[in-house]
Design a protein around this nucleic acid. Structure first.
Lengths: 140, 140
DNA sequence: AAACCATTGACAAGCAGTTTCAAGTCGGTA
DNA sequence: TACCGACTTGAAACTGCTTGTCAATGGTTT
C-alpha cells in the first residue's frame, strides 16, 4: 500500500506521529473509491468498532488534503465532500440534482482551454473544479 | 428597472407580498456588480440606515435565487457567495488563493464541450460552475 | 374599514467544523 | 527497557453561518 508509505513520509517530514487513529482513517479513506464526507467516515469507522473522535477525523482529513492524497470537492450548497486522489486521474463531476448521484468525467480539451484562459489573464492555476448540475438518465 | 418588475411579478405569481424590506434588498443587490455574501448586504443596508433583519436577508436571497435573478456561487471552502445574474452573461471564475480576488471569464468553447460531455453521458444539464484556483498577477 | 394571512424581527436552535485542554501516547534517547 | 518531552487524542465548549419559531406588524382584498 503505497499511500500508507506516502502519508507516513509526509508525517515524518513534519515531525508528526504515526498513530493508530491516523492509520485507521487513512485505510478507511482508501477502502472505497466513492466521494465521502467527514460524517460518513466516522460512521464507517464506528461500524467497524474503531472509535475515533470527530475532531480527529477533521484534523486528519486536513493532513490528507495537505499531503495531496485527498482533495476537497463541493457539490452545490452542501457541506464539504472529499475524494482520494492517489492513483486516480483528475476528473470533474456531473451531479444529479434529484437523486444526488455523481458521475465522473475527464476531458483533456477542457483542461487545455483552462490553461489558455489562465495565460490570457496572467493567472497561475493551482487547481480547479468543474461541476455540471442537472439530471441523470433515471431522474430526467 | 426591469429586475424590480421581474421580482414583483415573481412574487405576485406566488401570492407573496411586495414589501419595503424586499424592495430594499433587491435594490441593494443590484446596486453593485460585485459578488457578495449575506453579511455584506446587511452591512451595506445598515450604512444607509435601512434596517432589515438577518433572517429577512436570508429569506429574500432565497427568493431571489428561486426567481433566477441571483445565483449562489461557492469560492473554495468559505461560506456562500451570491451574484446577480440579470443582464449578466454566464461566466466562470478565477479565484486567487492568496488575496481572494476574483476574475470573471467566459469561454464558449468550454460551454460547448460541456454540452457534448452531457450528451455522451445521457445527462441533462441545468447549470454548472467552474472555478479555477490559483494566483493572480500581484500574488504570484 | 375590517379581516385575512403573509411577513417581519428578535431570538433560539441547528449544524458543520474548530478550538481548548487535560490526559494519554509516540518515539527518540540513555 | 525506562524515561521524557513533544505531539495527539477525545470530550465538550465554542464559532460563525444559516434556519426555524412565534408574537406582532402590515399588505391586500373585499
Amino acid at each position: 500500500m503505497e499511500n500508507i508509505e506516502l502519508f507516513h513520509k509526509f508525517l515524518a517530514e513534519k515531525k508528526m506521529k504515526w498513530t493508530p487513529e491516523r492509520k485507521a482513517i487513512l485505510e478507511e479513506v482508501f477502502a472505497s473509491h466513492d466521494h465521502f464526507e467527514a460524517d460518513d467516515l466516522l460512521f464507517r469507522l464506528k461500524k467497524k468498532d474503531i472509535r475515533v473522535s470527530r475532531a480527529t477525523i477533521y484534523r486528519t482529513l486536513e493532513l490528507l488534503v495537505n499531503s495531496q492524497l485527498v482533495r476537497k470537492i463541493s457539490f452545490g450548497e452542501e457541506h464539504t465532500h472529499y475524494e482520494h486522489t492517489y492513483g486516480h486521474k483528475h476528473h470533474d463531476h456531473l451531479v444529479c440534482l434529484k437523486c444526488g448521484s455523481v458521475l465522473e468525467f475527464s476531458n483533456p480539451t477542457i483542461e487545455e482551454i483552462q490553461e489558455r484562459v489562465c495565460t490570457d489573464y496572467d493567472f497561475t492555476p493551482d487547481s480547479h473544479c468543474l461541476q455540471i448540475f442537472g439530471y441523470c438518465t433515471k431522474c430526467r
